[in-house]
Design a protein around this nucleic acid. Structure first.
Length: 468
RNA sequence: GGCGACGUGGCCGAGUGGCUUAGGCACGGGUCUGCAAAACCCGCUACACCGGUUCAACUCCGGUCGUCGCCUCCA
């Protein structure tokens, strides 16, 4: 596979450090509020990347942290008169709940910063001992000047950065670029004991400590949003490598989401939370919206986009419905016909193209196009009656595997639970149609639609499907 | 100012030096249907602008215009 690396700014052949084992770390959210849809993109990208690697036969360990100690969490707690832990717990739970609704499973490890204070302290102590960090008052800072490679990821010139840098009043930094590894606690703030007194970890250090703990030095892929390149990832590299730990081998950054017309602002109402989207749209539609463009491109996010992808997933769902109907009652061990084989051959070619698309820097948009190509070919074969029951079953099995990689498993689900009253209305409608009472028939169809279902007339009767 | 993206047909969005009609959505015309829906078939077909390189550029190079992200907390 070829994977773009933000460090070298080019696509490189990806070969895991450990043979058949891929190690990945993605920066997760700081849980001071419900996560917004922007937070969902790296989540989806990482889970799809994991599935792709697994489809290639690799074993994958994906670590995605949850930052549960941070100024914003503390501030929120203070503002609401609650303990910061309560705030962090509430939104960490909400984050897991919201992302789980996407149906992509969970990362293998989801470490919390507050459960790795010792690892963080050990890492900082090492940096202090090596002369890469220093204590200043109650705080400990990383000495940027001591690390010659600072700026190598963001391509920022240290001298340039100093120009525009601001020094916060009250800081004891020796250099405006130095960043906090450990923040001394002010009265009333959450704190842990450390060699430098009571305090809490700075933001960047947790990711270094936890990625190195779970994946070891020189792990394969570190990902996150583009906006994390500076300072977050730059700092992670500096503090990790200065501590003698080679860091990530590939840097994978996803593009930002733009909210059309609605600028993401701090004012609470403007933020599009993941849960608000999922309350209104099926998770597959959101996933399709993300996968429809390349992960590195900025994505214009809108209601129109979601409505379009709702149509797309409906299309895929219809393929599976058609396949399931055709495959029903397939006799075990039935031989495939030549026509079946022709369809399977086309599918195999699409599958190859699908894999090749993903092998090129995870080009999900091109991969998805192949899936739609299959949809057209399969529908055509179905319409022409060229697929036997056994053939349809074989196609369905193969196609299910393909869409699984993209996390679109839900479109393969064809088992809609239809309420008895809806079925009764459909039966009544059938009778009305048989009696050529089309006014009544149409009224019943409207009533069924009202109930959230769609009735389709098929040769031997009707078919009911759930709409949203 | 520094770093980095990007400008593709009605919309979204891949991609490549000389056939990809990418794909989806929307739209128009058909087939099917009592009418629909779904599905299939057909159609609509682009590459911001100006130069240059080349037998050949949407694709390479240079410039112009425009949009955007980061440089401060941020997925």
């Amino acid at each position: 596979m070829r994977l773009y690396d933000s460090m070298t700014q080019e696509k490189k052949d990806f070969v895991p450090r450990d043979g058949d084992h891929v190690t990945m770390y993605f920066c997760g959210p700081t849980v001071y509020n419900y996560v917004h849809i922007g937070n969902a993109r790296p989540y989806v990208v990482s889970m799809v990347a994991k599935r792709y690697f697994e489809s290639l036969g690799y074993r994958v360990t994906l670590v995605e942290n949850i930052t549960d100690i941070d100024d914003r969490i503390i501030n929120k707690g203070n503002a609401e008169g609650r303990d910061y832990r309560e705030v962090a717990k509430q939104f960490a739970d909400a984050y897991r709940e919201d992302t789980s609704r996407l149906g992509l499973g969970r990362p293998d490890v989801e470490p919390l910063a507050t459960e790795h204070i010792q690892e963080i302290i050990d890492l900082i102590a090492g940096l202090v001992a090596e002369g890469h960090a220093y204590q200043a008052g109650p705080d400990v800072y990383f000495d940027v000047d001591s690390w010659g490679e600072y700026g190598k990821l963001s391509k920022q010139q240290v001298a340039e950065m100093r120009h525009g840098a601001r020094i916060d009043v009250g800081d004891d930094k020796a250099d405006p670029l130095d960043f906090a590894l450990w923040k001394g606690a002010k009265p009333g703030e959450p704190a842990w004991d450390s060699p430098w007194g009571q305090g809490r970890p700075g933001w960047h250090i947790e990711c270094s400590a936890m990625s190195l703990k779970y994946l070891g030095a020189g792990f394969d892929i570190h990902g996150g949003g583009r906006d994390l390149i500076f300072p977050h990832h730059e700092n992670e590299i500096a503090q990790s490598e200065a501590a003698g730990k080679p860091f990530a081998r590939f840097w994978m950054h996803n593009g930002m989401l733009n909210l059309s017309s609605e600028k993401m602002s701090k004012s609470v109402g403007n933020i599009r939370t993941l849960r608000s989207i999922l309350d209104k749209h099926r998770p597959e539609a959101l996933i399709a919206a993300f996968l429809g463009s390349h992960y590195r491109s900025p994505l214009e996010f809108s209601e129109d986009l979601l409505e379009e992808t709702e149509q797309q997933v409906d299309r895929l769902r219809n393929v599976f419905r058609g396949l399931a109907d055709r495959a029903a009652g397939a006799p075990a061990g039935a031989a495939l016909t030549a026509a079946d084989q022709a369809v399977l051959d086309k599918l195999a070619a699409r599958h190859t193209a699908f894999d090749e698309a993903l092998a090129d820097d995870l080009n999900t948009a091109a991969a998805l196009a192949e899936v739609f190509g299959v949809a057209r070919e399969v529908n055509a074969a179905l319409a022409a009656g060229e697929l036997s029951a056994a053939g349809a079953a074989a196609v369905r099995t193969e196609l299910t595997g393909v869409i699984h990689v993209l996390g679109l498993d839900a479109v393969a689900g064809t088992e809609d639970e239809i309420p008895a009253e809806v079925v009764a209305m459909a039966e009544e409608r059938r009778a009305a149609r048989a009696a050529r009472d089309f006014a009544k028939s149409d009224a019943l169809r409207d009533a069924i639609a009202e109930a959230g279902y769609e009735v389709r007339d098929v040769p031997d009767g009707f078919k009911i499907i759930r709409t949203r």
